[in-house]
Design a protein around this nucleic acid. Structure first.
Lengths: 328, 328
DNA sequence: TTGTAAGCGTTATCAC
DNA sequence: GTGATAACGCTTACAA
């Protein structure tokens, strides 16, 4: 059923119906009410496919995430949706876990006008070569971004956050502090490692390459495996800093498995403060990221780029917080 | 840039360009190559807004979830996407946590032609009144559904699954088995309670109303709170069956807090087998749902409804599995 | 305040 | 095989 049928039935033109539909003020109150009555009566719903073509906007925002199984991303997405829904935008979700190669397909959605803009949590998407092609497109990097591009981004100060975490361990007297890091092609992994290194250096603790590990993934098992290998050192670390809670929780399990008591024998610090972190035994000490706030901020920046493209979009750094629990 | 520009540049009509774009065979190979060259050269991308209007399909599928923070839903969504992406469909995500009232807005997206169909994991969406209005629309209920509607759905046999879990506890000698259930307006909650009741009855164990609890939510704290209250009974339960892993994990924490040792003093069984269930101490015994498979099955049914609307859509029940770990 | 009509960029139906 | 051209259903100048 189209606007035309409604117009005929209401005895007005399609233009008038359209005006009523879009709350234009240039409609006589009486007419408005009459038309609205017909609309309700017929249960008419505007065809968004047509509306989108005419207005050249889809009302859709693409959100790319590396792995939905990690609850961290779920929380950020909720923050994004919270900001976007009231303005009538909907979120198109792309889990890019298996699609690192074809990721440009996702940003192509923007060019195809299928979405109005994008928020990328996915490190693959935020790759330089893509950014160069697309730096003028309305997209925002969230959490992960490329330092050399001009794409606006939101995130925390990963360097400072990691440094704070390691300093905390140093303050507690630890000197053999291991780090379970991640693939250095990711900015957050590089920054957190730099924070770790800086904290040690400042404290005059020599960097032991044996203690600086790179987990093959961000899953629980990756953390457990790395921890197991760390335990085999002749001189075990007394503390470990993991760049994600999932890794830290895996490390916790590995420590338990080899009979280490946390935090007495081994202190463990994680990163993110996902909900699980407070449920482990002992509860995980971790660096909290403001997940929903990161999502909201990214959405706000994108919205600004969409509504006032001329304005300069400003990147944002949100505060992190070391949340001390029982594991360290 | 439009198809018209490409056509002019290639020296053909827009019709021919469109044919090349859509892989129609009625194009001379030579022409096809020539046109494709221009397309590539210009970096032309078809405008999906126009295409969608013309073809009357959006290529979008709505997925409603009650709470993205629960990794359970993330896994199901991955299953859905896995099946949908290869066919060129994208998924529109709606977290309906705060929107139980206005949920009809989400299904209205179908009528607005904004999406071609929907998969609803969200219990609110799957409400009878809605189902009546929309039973002929292309949507599929996943995990939660309404027994009295004709909407196709996929899920597990919640009754049997809960019965199996409780039987396992009975087999291990438990007689005072508590249940941490959930709001009975949800089918899965009713079915799992029925399974619990049936198992006890069959074993000749009298139902103790004190042991049959309803958690106010599905979060960790809800489980912990319910467990604490259970611990205050003069005759404590020796085992507890929770209708979700999050509740069970909260219960685990509460048990620890009051000095109970699991499973010696208290056996705990959860439901879902989210990734985190294997990380707790002791690792959680739980009823596994095939999360990705549920998503894939739901997507397959929807796809069938979209491509062959005349065919009868068949609901599916997928197998569950009791995964015995250390907590019971 | 309302109506007419010109698009929006495609795809699809005809002719040729 | 290819090209005009008419939709698709809406919004929005512009005219009345």
């Amino acid at each position: 059923m189209s606007i035309k049928v409604v117009a005929e039935r209401a005895g007005v033109s399609v233009a008038t119906v359209s005006r009523v539909l879009n709350d234009h003020d240039a409609v006589r109150e009486e007419t408005r009410i009459q038309v609205q009555r017909i609309i309700d009566e017929m249960g008419y719903q505007a065809n968004h496919l047509a509306r989108n073509l005419r207005t050249a906007r889809s009302g859709l925002v693409l959100v790319t995430v590396p792995d939905l199984r990690n609850p961290f991303y779920g929380r950020v997405i909720e923050g994004i949706a919270e900001r976007l829904q009231p303005l009538g935008y909907h979120t198109l979700l792309c889990d890019t876990r298996q699609h690192s190669k074809q990721v440009s397909n996702h940003l192509r959605l923007i060019m195809q006008r299928k979405v109005d803009g994008a928020i990328c949590l996915d490190p693959y998407t935020v790759h330089r070569s893509l950014a160069e092609d697309l730096h003028d497109l309305p997209w925002v990097a969230c959490c992960e971004y490329d330092e050399d591009t001009q794409v606006p981004h939101v995130g925390i100060d990963n360097f400072a956050a990691a440094r704070d975490a390691v300093r905390y361990l140093l303050d507690r007297g630890h000197r053999r502090i291991a780090m379970i890091g991640y693939d250095q092609s990711f900015l957050f992994a590089r920054q957190r490692r730099a924070g770790y290194v800086a904290a040690l250096k400042q404290a005059g603790v020599a960097l032991d390459p044996d203690l600086l590990r790179v987990a093959p993934g961000l899953g629980f098992d990756d953390g457990a495996d790395t921890m197991h290998s760390l335990c085999q050192l002749r001189e075990r670390p007394t503390a470990v800093f993991a760049v994600s809670d999932t890794l830290a929780i895996g490390a916790l399990r590995a420590a338990r498995a080899v009979g280490l008591q946390v935090p007495r024998d081994l202190a463990v610090v994680g990163f993110d403060d996902i909900d699980f972190a407070a449920q482990t035994d002992p509860a995980l000490t971790t660096v909290a990221q403001p997940m929903e706030a990161l999502g909201r901020a990214a959405a706000a920046i994108l919205l600004q780029r969409l509504t006032r493209p001329a304005d300069l979009a400003i990147s944002q750094t949100l505060p992190h917080e070391l949340r001390v629990r029982a594991s360290a």
